[in-house]
Design a binder for these strands. Structure first.
Length: 510
RNA sequence: GCCCCCAUCGUCUAGUGGUCUAGGACGUCAGCCUUUCAAGCUGGAAACAGCGAUUCGAAUUCGCUUGGGGGCACCA
C-alpha cells in the first residue's frame, strides 16, 4: 500500500496552532513517512469571519519547527492544488450545483432568524436541534417568490429520511448511525463559501487522499461525509478517528488549561524533539517500556493499530521531564547555541550584550542538568552575568544551615539587616569569610581543584562543617542557597569577582 | 434532550482467556550519593468503575448500569 498512502493535515487558520491539531498533524506525518506515502497540507480557510491574520504562517512555522515536512501544500505546491480552499470556491460551487441538479441537495431560503428561533424552541422542548426541512419540498412557484424577495439561498443536503449509515473506523471498528438523526446540513453558505463538510469531501477526493486521520470530535460528522461521498459518486477514504487531547479536568484541552499553542512551547524553550516525542506518546505507544524515541524511530515504528481509543490528558509535568532528558543529551556546543537567545532575552538589561558565547560555553555544563526548559537558564545563571548580587543578608546564615523553623521566625526582607539570634556556629561567619578572602587572594591558580584544596581544609580549621563553610561561601558568591557546585562556579566567575563578592558579604554582616 | 465514542495506578500507558499475587514511565514518598540544588541509583505507596453472563479459568468476550467525553451552526 506504500505508494497509495496519501494523508493530509487540514487546519483552519482561526488562531494559533493548537497542540491537539499538531498532534493530528504528527500522526498523519508519521503514518505517511512510515509507509513512504505523501503528507499534504491543506488550509481550510472557508470561514471568512473567523479568519486570523498570520495564522497560516504560525501553523506552517510550527510544522517546520517540529520537522514535519510536507510534500504538497502551501509554499511547495503540488499536482492537486491550489491548497488553500479559498482559492477553490468554483470547484465547490460546481459540486453543490451538481448535487442540486441530481436531486441530492436543494436551495434553502430560510432566514437566520428563523433558524435560530427554531433551534431555541427545539432546545426548550428538549428536542434534538436541527433544520426542519421546510425548503426541502418547495414548489417552483414558492421558490420563485422567495427568489424575487432577493434572498440568497444556501444549499442543503437532502439527507435520507431513514436507513443506516455505517462505516469501518480503523481505530474504533464499525460505527453505525441512524440517518433519521442527521438533519439537512448546509453545503454551500450564502456567501458562496462551502462548509467544512462539502469542501472536505470534495478535496479529499480530488487530492486522492487515502486515509483520513483526524480527531475524535469529527466522528459524529463522518456519516454526513459518507453520504456526500456516495451522492457525488466518490470512493470514501479510510477513516481513523484519533483520541482527543484533554485538559487536566478531562475536557477538551483549551486555553484555561494553560499553554495550548505549540508556538508558546517553542518560545518557552522546549526542544522540538521532546515535543514530538511527547506528542507521539499521547494516544500511541510502541510497547510497555520504550518512551524516548527520536523522529526516525517513531517513523519506523508508527502504526495505526497501536493508537489507543481513550482521550489523553496533556501532562505538563511529563513534557517537562522529557524535555529535560533531551536537554541533557545535547552536547555543550548544541546547548550553547540554544541557550544564548534565551539569555539574551531573559537577562536583565544591565547585562551588556552581545552575550559572549565563549563565556556561556563555560557556564552551560554547570546548568545543563539543572534545566527542564531553555527559558530557565537566565534565572539559573544570572549571577554569572550580573554585577551586583541581590539577596537577603540572612541567607548567608541560611547557607550555613539555619533551620527552617528559625527561618520562619526571621522573615527578613531583601536589603534589611538581620539582627535576630544566630544559629549555632554562625558567629563564625565573618571570620570564615575573612579567612577565605585571604586564602583565595594568595591562591596561585584559581581553578576548581585548587579551590577545593584550600577551602576544604579551611572548614576544619574554623571548626565548621564543610557544608556550613561551603554554604556560606555559596551565598556570598552566587547570592543563593541553591546553585551549581561551588568550586566550578567560583572558577568560572574568576578570582576578582569572587573576592569582591565575598568582601560585599562581609560588609553585610558588620 | 437526542446521537456517537470511551472506561487499567493521580497522569501517559503495556496487557488482546491461563505466563497478572497486573508491567513500565511521569508525578509522589523514603533511602543512597553529596558542599546546596539538580542529575543519578535503590526501594515504597498507588489501578483492572460496578453488576450480571459465557468459560474449567476473565483486566482481557458479551449485556446492563454508572461515570466521562465529543457532536447536534450559513464554525471548522
Amino acid at each position: 500500500m506504500s505508494d497509495l498512502v496519501r494523508v493530509r493535515f487540514a487546519p483552519s487558520p482561526t488562531g494559533m496552532p493548537h497542540v491537539g491539531n499538531i498532534r493530528t498533524a504528527l500522526f498523519n506525518w508519521l503514518f505517511a513517512r512510515h509507509h513512504g506515502g505523501s503528507f499534504i497540507v491543506r488550509i481550510e480557510d472557508t470561514d471568512v469571519t473567523r479568519r486570523v491574520e498570520g495564522a497560516v504562517e504560525a501553523i506552517l512555522d510550527s510544522l517546520r519547527w517540529l520537522g514535519l515536512d510536507w510534500d504538497e501544500g502551501p509554499e511547495v505546491g503540488g499536482d492537486y492544488g491550489p491548497y488553500l480552499q479559498s482559492q477553490r470556491l468554483e470547484i465547490y460551487r460546481a459540486a453543490a450545483e451538481r448535487l442540486v441538479k441530481q436531486g441530492d441537495a436543494y436551495l434553502c431560503y430560510c432566514p437566520l432568524e428563523r433558524l435560530e428561533e427554531m433551534r431555541r424552541e427545539q432546545v426548550k422542548k428538549k428536542q434534538p436541534p436541527g433544520y426542519d426541512r421546510r425548503c426541502r419540498a418547495l414548489t417552483e412557484k414558492e421558490r420563485a417568490e422567495l427568489e424575487a424577495q432577493g434572498i440568497t439561498p444556501v444549499v442543503r443536503f437532502k439527507t435520507p429520511l431513514e436507513g443506516q449509515i455505517r462505516f469501518q473506523d480503523l481505530i474504533r471498528g464499525e460505527v453505525v448511525f441512524e440517518a433519521a438523526t442527521i438533519d439537512d446540513f448546509v453545503l454551500l453558505k450564502s456567501d458562496g463559501y462551502p462548509t467544512y463538510h462539502l469542501a472536505n469531501v470534495v478535496d479529499d477526493h480530488l487530492m486522492k487522499i487515502s486515509h483520513v486521520l483526524r480527531a475524535d470530535e469529527w466522528l459524529s460528522s463522518t456519516p454526513r461525509h459518507i453520504l456526500l461521498y456516495k451522492a457525488l459518486g466518490y470512493e470514501p477514504p479510510e477513516f481513523a478517528h484519533l483520541p482527543m487531547i484533554l485538559g487536566s479536568d478531562r475536557s477538551k484541552l483549551s486555553k484555561r488549561h494553560g499553554a495550548t499553542s505549540v508556538i508558546e512551547y517553542r518560545d518557552k524553550g522546549y526542544l522540538p524533539e521532546a515535543v514530538v516525542n511527547f506528542l507521539a506518546l499521547l494516544g500511541w505507544s510502541l510497547d510497555d517500556k520504550t518512551e524516548i524515541m527520536g523522529r526516525d524511530e517513531l517513523v519506523r515504528n508508527f502504526s495505526i493499530e497501536r493508537i489507543s481509543k481513550t482521550g489523553a490528558i496533556f501532562s505538563q509535568e511529563k513534557l517537562g521531564w522529557m524535555n529535560g532528558v533531551y536537554m541533557r543529551r545535547l552536547s555543550t556546543e548544541e546547548l550553547v547555541e540554544q541557550v544564548v537567545p534565551f539569555l539574551d532575552s531573559g537577562l536583565p538589561q544591565t547585562v551588556k550584550r552581545p552575550i559572549s558565547r565563549d563565556y556561556v560555553r563555560l557556564i552551560v555544563p554547570l546548568t545543563q542538568e539543572r534545566m527542564r526548559i531553555l527559558s530557565e537558564v537566565s534565572e539559573l545563571a544570572d549571577f554569572f552575568f550580573v554585577d551586583e548580587l541581590d539577596y537577603r543578608s540572612v541567607d548567608l546564615y541560611l547557607g550555613m544551615g539555619l533551620g527552617a523553623d528559625e527561618q520562619r521566625l526571621l522573615e527578613v526582607k531583601p536589603g534589611e539587616r538581620y539582627t535576630g539570634p544566630l544559629p549555632y556556629g554562625a558567629e563564625k561567619a565573618p571570620i570564615a569569610l575573612r579567612t577565605a578572602l585571604e586564602k583565595l587572594q594568595a591562591l596561585p591558580s584559581f581553578d576548581a581543584p585548587s579551590l577545593e584544596s584550600v577551602l576544604r581544609p579551611l572548614a576544619a580549621e574554623l571548626g565548621l562543617k564543610t557544608g556550613e563553610l561551603f554554604g556560606l561561601l555559596r551565598v556570598a558568591v552566587t547570592g543563593r542557597t541553591a546553585a551549581p557546585p561551588l568550586f566550578q562556579t567560583m572558577a568560572v566567575l574568576g578570582r576578582e569577582r569572587c573576592l569582591r563578592r565575598i568582601g560585599a558579604a562581609l560588609a553585610r554582616l558588620k
